[in-house]
Nucleic acid binder design. Sequence first.
DNA 1: TTGACACATGACAGTATTATCATATGATAC
DNA 2: GTATCATATGATAATACTGTCATGTGTCAA
Lengths: 110, 110
Amino acid sequence: MTVLSYDTSIMKTNTTLDALTSFYKLLANESRLSILLALRDGEDNVAGICGQTGLSQTLVSHQLAVLHRSDVVRSRKDGRRTFYALADKHIDIIVGFALDHLAEKEVHHE
Amino acid sequence: MTVLSYDTSIMKTNTTLDALTSFYKLLANESRLSILLALRDGEDNVAGICGQTGLSQTLVSHQLAVLHRSDVVRSRKDGRRTFYALADKHIDIIVGFALDHLAEKEVHHE
DNA sequence: TTGACACATGACAGTATTATCATATGATAC
DNA sequence: GTATCATATGATAATACTGTCATGTGTCAA
């Protein structure tokens, strides 16, 4: 993408814009979102997440890796299992907020 | 994607999951996000948005169309110009919230 | 130490998204 | 009418993303 700004102040926020885009991209996938929603109830291991979401182990592992690289989830090993949890309360809040937003929109469209 | 849930309650939320994914997809693009950030300062026409964002007219029109179809922005015609604005305060709040989140994360990572 | 278990990872085909070019539409000024 | 302005739209090539298959790694039990 070309970001040819004639204004320095816009340039300064480009790094933020980029970070924001990357952040939303993480949430813009049904599998990842499904995993994050599952983790709102507390930490769980891969098999547990597969059970909660109905997704395959490979897919869950892949997406957890993506989320982990971006520090959206944290992991903890216990024997041969790996437990994952939302990295911080923010993710929980942000997802919750969007859910509320959609719910409210639903009402308005009735 | 396979969503083979063995639990009816999960099935019920699939429509929400889908809506949530679609919503985040709208935000998960640098051009669209740039446009939305520009509109946080108030409504503007296409040329104005092009100026604010540094994006081409064609691209801005395309992305505004996407955002409009999903009711994220509303439009108002005035002569040969079209003014766009955030459809409701939610979008503003959600984007603002995520920005705060990222800002706070920055601080933590220092 | 062997086998099963829990998870991770590389490769890849299918699909979706992106930005651009070319062009169309509609409004206004002359 | 016609030239120009402001925006919209269709087609398309490049690129990115998704989910799956095959397989690898580390752990525990017997």
